[in-house]
Simulated assay, not measured.
Amino acid sequence: MEIVNMVLEYFIMICIGLVGSFFSGLLGIGGAIINFPLLLYVPEWFGFTGFTPKEVASISMLQVFFASLSGMVSNRISSKGGPSLVHKRLVLQMGLSTLIGSLIGSVASSFLNSATINMIYGFLAVIAVVMMVIPTKASSENKPVTEVTYNVLLAVSAAFLVGIVSGIVGAGGAFILIPIMLTLLKIPTRITIASSLAIVFLSAVGGVTGKLTAGDIPVWPAVFAVIGSLLGAPLGTYLSRRMNVKMLRYALVVLIAVTAVKIWIDILV
């Protein structure tokens, strides 16, 4: 019976990783925005010992690392023969900035209690929803990567701040970076999605380093969540290139909104 329970628990972790990474590839996010509540609630629903918010943040950050890596590889394979949608200068500037911020945040999370981590996650989700419903100019959608310009100081500063709070909750930060890139930096949607995976990967490098230093990662549950993430990201990336840009944006808004409502209900009730 014990073996059956262990197998079931690890299967659940694979499914959680798969769901999160599917949305990672589909919408250019690291998957943490959906994985955080799944890891927090789903194991308990099946009668298993739940994870603490610190453990959830650590598992989620490790999953984000591998999901974003897998998504990047799939994106590169899918784009062969066509123009690259990754803005390399943007990735380098925002990626390094969010890496530093994420490292700081992930180390700082070991000094915070569970309620504070959940509240920070809730605030990030609400901010992301608000920013995603702000309309952007559709005329920029057809711009090639070489013609896209943006405010460098704003991009670097925003990435650093997002990196800090994302490192605390175990996120790559894309669920808030994407709205910033779309609404404030005016980056076209498809370039935003393609570039955000690379930015999230660099953010996750800093986050994972910090979580390993703090020692909060449950190894085996994290391993099986990663296995699931490696399965889901390529499928999400494949579908993202065959869907309407507006549908991608609306799907991201709905995903974040549902998650925000759930986490705040638990905080306030």
Rank of each mutant, 00 (worst) to 15 (best):
1 M>S: 15
1 M>T: 13
4 V>W: 13
4 V>R: 15
10 Y>V: 00
14 I>M: 03
18 L>Q: 04
21 S>N: 11
22 F>I: 14
23 F>L: 13
24 S>Q: 14
28 G>N: 03
29 I>H: 06
29 I>D: 04
33 I>T: 15
33 I>F: 14
34 I>D: 03
37 P>I: 07
38 L>N: 02
39 L>G: 12
41 Y>N: 15
41 Y>P: 11
41 Y>L: 15
48 F>I: 05
49 T>Q: 10
53 P>D: 11
54 K>R: 12
54 K>T: 08
55 E>R: 14
55 E>V: 13
59 I>H: 13
62 L>Q: 12
74 S>V: 09
75 N>S: 15
77 I>M: 00
80 K>S: 14
83 P>G: 02
84 S>C: 10
86 V>W: 01
89 R>V: 12
91 V>T: 11
92 L>G: 07
96 L>P: 03
98 T>G: 01
101 G>M: 07
101 G>Y: 00
105 G>E: 10
112 L>K: 12
115 A>L: 09
119 M>Q: 08
120 I>T: 14
122 G>S: 14
122 G>K: 09
125 A>M: 13
130 V>F: 05
130 V>E: 02
131 M>W: 04
132 M>I: 14
132 M>Q: 03
135 P>Y: 00
141 E>G: 02
146 T>N: 15
147 E>R: 12
149 T>D: 14
150 Y>A: 06
154 L>R: 06
154 L>Y: 11
157 S>G: 08
161 L>V: 15
164 I>S: 03
169 V>K: 02
169 V>Y: 02
170 G>Q: 10
170 G>N: 10
172 G>L: 02
172 G>E: 05
172 G>K: 01
175 F>D: 03
175 F>T: 02
176 I>R: 07
176 I>K: 03
179 P>E: 04
184 L>Y: 11
184 L>G: 00
187 I>G: 08
190 R>A: 13
192 T>Y: 06
194 A>K: 08
195 S>T: 06
195 S>H: 06
197 L>G: 09
203 S>D: 02
208 V>F: 03
213 T>G: 12
215 G>R: 01
218 P>Q: 09
219 V>R: 13
220 W>S: 12
221 P>W: 08
221 P>S: 09
222 A>L: 07
222 A>I: 05
224 F>N: 09
226 V>D: 05
229 S>F: 02
234 P>N: 15
242 R>P: 01
247 M>W: 03
249 R>A: 07
249 R>C: 08
251 A>W: 04
251 A>N: 02
251 A>G: 01
251 A>V: 01
252 L>Y: 07
253 V>S: 11
253 V>I: 12
255 L>N: 03
257 A>T: 12
257 A>C: 14
260 A>R: 08
261 V>K: 09
262 K>V: 15
264 W>K: 00
267 I>N: 12
268 L>P: 02
